Amino acid sequence: MDKFEEEKEFLKNVYSSHVTKPSMQTKVLRELTFRTLSRYLNSESSVLELGCSDGYLTQKYAMIVKEIDVVDGSDFFISMAKERIEASGVQNVTFYTSLFETFESSKRYDVVVASFILEHVLEPLDVLRMARNVLKDDGLLLVVVPNANALSRQLALEMGLYKDLKELTEHDYKVGHRRVYDREALTQDMENAGFESIEDGGIMVKILADFQLDQLYEHGILQERQIEGLYRLGLKYPDLCGGIYSICKKSK
Rank of each mutant, 00 (worst) to 15 (best):
Val180Ile: 15
Leu165Met: 03
Thr169Tyr: 04
Asn149Ala: 10
Ser115Glu: 00
Val145Trp: 02
Arg179Gly: 06
Asp126Trp: 04
Val175Asp: 02
Glu191Ala: 14
Asn133Tyr: 00
Asp126Cys: 14
Ala131Trp: 00
Val145Met: 04
His120Leu: 07
Val175Tyr: 00
Glu167Arg: 06
Leu118Met: 15
Ala131Phe: 08
Gln154Trp: 01
Met190Arg: 08
Val143Trp: 04
Arg183Trp: 09
Asp182Phe: 05
Leu135Gly: 08
Leu157Glu: 05
Ile117Leu: 13
Leu155Asp: 07
Asp182Arg: 02
Leu118Lys: 09
Ala131Gln: 03
Leu140Arg: 15
Leu141His: 05
Glu167Trp: 01
Glu119Pro: 13
Leu157Gln: 11
Ala185Thr: 15
Arg179Met: 12
Leu151Phe: 10
Val134Cys: 11
Leu135Glu: 04
Thr169Ser: 12
Met130Leu: 12
Leu122Ser: 14
Asn147Asp: 10
Thr187Trp: 00
Ala156Gln: 14
Lys174His: 09
Asp138Leu: 01
Glu167Asn: 04
Val121Asn: 04
Lys174Glu: 06
Lys166Asp: 07
Arg183Phe: 11
Gln188Glu: 15
Asn149Val: 05
Lys136His: 02
Leu125His: 11
Glu184Leu: 08
Ser152Cys: 14
Glu170Ser: 10
Asn147Tyr: 03
Ala131His: 08
Arg153His: 08
Leu140Tyr: 11
Gly139Ala: 06
